[in-house]
């Protein structure tokens, strides 16, 4: 049983690191501020969430897991507020997003 938990936790940790790296690459590759924000929100939701889940599986039912859950709740509630404040401040400052031209390129991945 403990082997299963170990494997699950390792999978979660590896997947979380992958999404964190994806967000980091996105921060470099994306063309303007607003699109970079979407990349950063991957780090804050799925990256952080999966790493915390992996650590929680490793810790089991202890106070450590409770603290990890608190860290998770903090990220879950505070990061969208900070992102929204940033986006709104940038918009009110007059930073306009680069919008796609009407129907030029297909946006299917």
């Amino acid at each position: 049983m403990s082997v299963v938990i170990d494997v699950l936790s390792a999978l979660c940790l590896v997947a979380g690191s992958f999404f964190c790296l994806t967000g980091g690459i996105g921060l470099i590759r994306m063309p303007d501020f607003y699109t970079r924000m979407h990349a950063a929100s991957i780090v804050e939701t799925l990256g952080a969430g999966l790493i915390l889940l992996g650590l929680m599986l490793e810790a089991g039912l202890t106070l450590i897991s409770v603290k990890l859950a608190m860290v998770g709740l903090l990220v879950f509630f505070a990061s969208p507020t900070a992102s929204h404040a940033l986006a709104r401040a940038a918009f009110l400052r007059g930073l306009m997003p680069e919008l796609a031209k009407a129907e030029d390129a297909s946006s299917k991945p």
Binding site: T22, I25, G26, P31, A39, A100
Partner: peptide, 15 residues
Amino acid sequence: VSKRIWHPSLPISPS
């Protein structure tokens, strides 16, 4: 979004 980030041609259309 991850698929779009890793895609070589960056298929986004911000709106």
